[in-house]
């Protein structure tokens, strides 16, 4: 398939995905729905730190800053894995169009990626608003003096980090779609389970070194760990020492997860064809 055709199919898929997700409400209501959830997640962890400080431990401003940035960018993980985890179920069982998409010349690859990009756009809006909201609340209203300066962010580091991180997450979502094609009624569990594992092992709200030593190697092979490390580096909040090293690890783990996801997809596709699973309908 030519690159131009692939891009065209992905673009059409993005447009379908955007319509499916957004055309049930007016833009303001839709934006509210997309923003409130990540804000609440951020407030939970921020209040843990603030309540902890009220017990006499003192407010750890650097820690809170890292936590705010990590939680804000974790929105990419939560939204991409969850939404791409549902994709096959909704298109196969609810709208009953998966088989039509599969037999069309465009194939499923650009379709899945295009739909994943909708989550990326939604998540990007959520991340930006969450960061602005954090500054307004914690440094404006509560006057806590959290060391986050959005004007001094290293964009030369942040932009490639987000591009690589998002690519890795779309590869994860692609793998989830493949697993959902050959499985039944796992769509709710898969995406959220994976997001839960990433939340625990990815160093989102505490440093990876706080994990039990037996599970730290698992953390070291996840792209999300380096994604968040590099994001914090770009905000001047890094603790690992080398931003380029984090970016390098992110690149390697993203390539690794991409290859693994493609292999899983190929295997799932062959199995689905053999067993006739592309039009299987399951209900609860």
């Amino acid at each position: 398939m030519a690159v131009a055709d692939f891009i065209k199919s992905a673009r059409e898929s993005f447009w379908v995905g955007w319509k499916v997700e957004s055309n049930w409400a007016d833009p303001v209501l839709f934006a509210t729905y997309r923003i409130v959830q990540p804000l609440a997640s951020l407030l939970i962890v921020a209040f843990i730190v603030i309540i902890g400080a009220s017990t006499g431990a003192g407010l750890q401003r650097d820690y809170l800053a890292r936590l705010i940035v990590s939680t804000a960018f974790f929105v990419y993980v939560a939204q991409i894995t969850t939404n791409m985890g549902w994709l096959v179920h909704t298109d196969r069982s609810r709208y009953e169009v998966l088989k039509n998409i599969y037999i069309s010349p465009g194939t499923l690859h650009p379709y899945i990626i295009g739909r994943g990009l909708v989550s990326v756009v939604n998540a990007t809006i959520s991340v930006i608003v969450t960061l602005l909201f954090s500054i307004a609340v914690f440094n404006g209203i509560l006057n806590l003096g959290i060391p986050i300066n959005l004007l001094s962010v290293n964009l030369l580091l942040l932009v490639p980090t987000v591009l690589l991180g998002v690519s890795g997450l779309i590869a994860v979502g692609y793998m989830l779609s493949a697993i959902n094609i050959v499985s039944n009624r796992l769509e709710f569990i898969l995406g959220e389970s994976l997001a839960g594992i990433f939340f625990l092992l990815g160093g989102v709200i505490f440093p990876v070194t706080a994990l039990p030593s037996q599970v730290q190697p698992l953390s070291a092979i996840l792209p999300i760990t380096y994604f968040l490390d590099a994001v914090r580096d770009s905000f001047g909040l890094g603790t690992t020492g080398s931003a380029l090293l984090d970016l390098g690890y992110l690149f390697v783990t993203t390539i690794g997860i991409g290859i693994f996801a493609y292999a899983v997809y190929r295997k799932a596709e062959l199995r689905a064809k053999r067993l006739g699973l592309f039009d299987r309908k399951s209900e609860y």
């Binding site: 017990t55 594992i197 939340f199 709200i205």
Partner: peptide, 20 residues
């Protein structure tokens, strides 16, 4: 059962990290 425990685990470790 396991999925919520993953999230709970993250918060328990956060509390430990903060020395609470």
């Amino acid at each position: 059962v396991v999925l919520p425990v993953l999230t709970i685990g993250a918060y328990v470790i956060l509390y430990k990290t903060l020395g609470l």
